[in-house]
Structures are given as C-alpha cells and as structure tokens.
C-alpha cells in the first residue's frame, strides 16, 4: 500500500505539468491578447498617452518574450521581470481587466465557491445514502414508491424555478435577503460571527436546490447498484448464515455498491468550481463560474488560466483521493500480486 501511495503521488506532478502547459497554450491560442486589444481601443479613441504605460506592462509581463519563457515565468521556474515570481512562489498572476492581482480579484469567492459546493456534496450524500439503502432494502414498498416519486419530481423540476420559489418564501417567512451568499451589509465587510451566520443562512437554499437534484439522481443510482448486488451469490451465502436481510445488505452489497461512488469523487471536486452555474446566476451567488466566463471573453488570460489550473488541480487531487480510497477499501486492488496463502 505504501508503495502504491508513493507511486500514485509521483504520477500527479507530471500530470499537473502537462495540464498547466496545455492550459497556458490554450488561453494564448486566440489571436491577440488583452494588452494589444487595449492598445487598439486606445488608438481608436486617440488616447496615445497611455500607450507608454501599456508598453511598460508588455515588457513587465514579458509579452515580447517567447511562449515557453512566459510559461516558465507563469509557473515560477524562469526569472521574469521581478525575478522568480510564479505559482511556485505563490503569485497567482495579474488580472489586466481588474488591474489587480488575481488573488485579490477572486478573494473570498474562491472560498465561498468551495464552501457552497462542499456543503452541497455533503447534503447529497446525507440524503441519498439512507434513502437509497431503504429503497433497495424494501424494493417496491410504499416508501420506495414514495421516494421514487419525489425523486422524479426533483429531477424534473428546473433548478432555477425551484430556487426562485424558495427564495420568495424564504424572504416572506424568514426575512432572508434575496440573492447572494450573505446579507448586503456584510459584502466587503470583515469576517465576523454575524457575517458567518448570514453566509450559513444564505447557503441553505442553493444547497437544497443544487443538492436536491443531485441527491435524486444518486438515489436512483445507489438503488440500482444495490439491487444488482443483492442478486449476487455471496448475499445468499450471508442470508444462509441466518443474518437479517438488512444487516446483510449493510455489510455486503453496500460495501460493493460504494465503489462507483468513490470513483466519482474525482469528478465531484472540479464540479465544485464549475458546476451549478445557472443556479449561481439566478441566485446571484458570488462563485467563480461567471468570473471565468468573463475572463475568457476579455482575454484576461492570467485570470482565466488561474481558474482553469485551479479546477485542474482539484481534478487531479480528486482522482488521486478516489484511487487511494478505492485501494484502501477494495483488497482486490490493494493486494493484487501478494503471494497466495
């Protein structure tokens, strides 16, 4: 297991290097860049005076250097105008559009995005697992039909509609402010208990809305997986020992049905960044999905590059976590190659 862990970890570095190179290449692919667009705009307006500043920025950010060198500076393995100053040194880059460091542009929204989506995933699992297990254990029972019905409604209702309805009643009954992830007075305010409380209150609706659909889908999948596993001979063996069917289900099929969900963790993490965009827009959530879209359109390539790289990093980490968890949970993966007893 230790060797597998090291092997799996050592795979991450080359993967990340390859992804970062690809991202850098892709965001540079469209003709032109933010600064030359800026120059063209200023020329059109006849404001030649600012051109000096832009020329300074061009050399500052090494736009006159070859691509590979700029990539090296971005990563932090090549000395730029200010020496080594890239990701490896903790510098996330500069946003031209906001004229601020990327770190400041994204600020809290990165953390809020991760918080929102983490809470959503947690809710999905908390709702889906008990219900999925109940539905499989008592297949075709009243509870099974009831949850199935609710699940289909959850899947079929458009998320944005549900969020608008919930928002309306939350405002009506609890006086919750419409939209956003906190009450307006806390935006740009320093973190305090009140602000944290406000964030938690505002999390409920998006988490329920995004998580509800996800949970409905997951219940269906878990139920189907469990029902498949319940047909297996080892279940009969366990029943033949005189165990209750429910205990058998929890010990054997559930364990086997978990594998696909663990394998899914790799996909879940990047969704924390890019998922749930429509709901974010409708609820006016300060997540980074919309920021990415705008950055790509205006060729604000260090900002876009950072967000993409961040998502890639989460994917790579998620994949590694799911692989390691699978190895930990499934002896067939962990022990392949161990001599037989």
């Amino acid at each position: 297991m230790g060797r597998y862990f090291l092997h799996r970890m050592s795979l991450m570095a080359p993967t990340l290097i390859a992804i970062s190179a690809l991202i850098f290449l892709v965001i540079q692919l469209p003709p032109g860049d933010y600064l030359s667009n800026q120059v063209a705009e200023l020329r059109a307006q006849g404001e030649e005076a600012n051109l000096d500043k832009i020329a300074f920025m061009r050399s500052e950010f090494g736009f006159d250097r070859p691509l590979i060198e700029r990539y090296g500076v971005w990563i932090g393995v090549w000395p730029g105008a200010n020496g080594f100053s890239g990701f490896l040194q903790g510098n996330w880059g500069w946003s031209f559009e906001y004229n601020k460091p990327v770190r400041e542009v994204l600020g809290d929204s990165l953390a809020l995005t991760v918080l929102l989506n983490f809470a959503t995933v947690l809710v999905i699992y908390l709702i889906a697992f008990p219900i999925g297990i109940l539905s499989a254990a008592w297949q075709y029972s009243l509870a099974d039909y009831g949850f199935t019905f609710l699940g289909y409604i959850g899947l079929a209702t458009p998320n944005f509609l549900l969020s608008l309805i919930l928002l309306y009643y939350a405002n009506l009954w609890f006086g919750l402010s419409i939209g956003g992830l906190m009450a307006p007075e806390y935006i740009d305010a320093a973190w305090s208990w009140g602000k944290a409380r406000s964030v938690l209150e505002h999390l409920v609706i998006p988490v329920l809305v995004i998580g509800g659909g996800g949970a409905a889908a997951m219940i269906r999948r878990l139920r189907a997986n469990l029902l498949d596993e319940l047909q297996k001979p080892y279940v009969t063996t366990a029943l033949a020992k005189g165990l209750t069917p429910f205990r058998v289900l929890l010990k054997y099929p559930l364990r086997m049905a978990l594998n696909p969900f663990i394998a899914d963790i790799g996909d879940l993490l990047p969704q924390m960044v890019s998922g749930s965009v429509i709901v974010s827009v409708v609820l006016n959530l300060p997540t980074i999905g919309p920021v990415l879209l705008q950055a790509l359109r205006s060729q604000d390539h260090y900002l876009a590059g950072f967000i993409l790289l961040f998502a890639a990093l989460l994917t790579v980490i998620g994949m590694a976590v799911s692989d390691l968890l699978l190895a930990l949970l499934d002896p067939r993966i962990r022990l392949s190659g161990r001599p037989a007893a």
């Binding site: 297996k232 080892y234 009969t236 063996t237 033949a240 005189g242 209750t244 086997m256 949970l329 002896p331």
Partner: peptide, 23 residues
C-alpha cells in the same frame, strides 16, 4: 433465521462468487 447457519447450512458450486471478495 435461527435455524439457518446453526442447524442447517449450505455450500455452493462457485466458491469465488459465493464469498464476498472484499471481506
């Protein structure tokens, strides 16, 4: 259930699939 596994037991043709692979 009190009889099963205590007073009467069963074994099957395919021991690989009749045993849980992860326990």
């Amino acid at each position: 259930r009190a009889l099963r596994g205590r007073y009467m037991s069963i074994i099957f043709q395919e021991p690989m699939s009749a045993l849980s692979p992860v326990h």
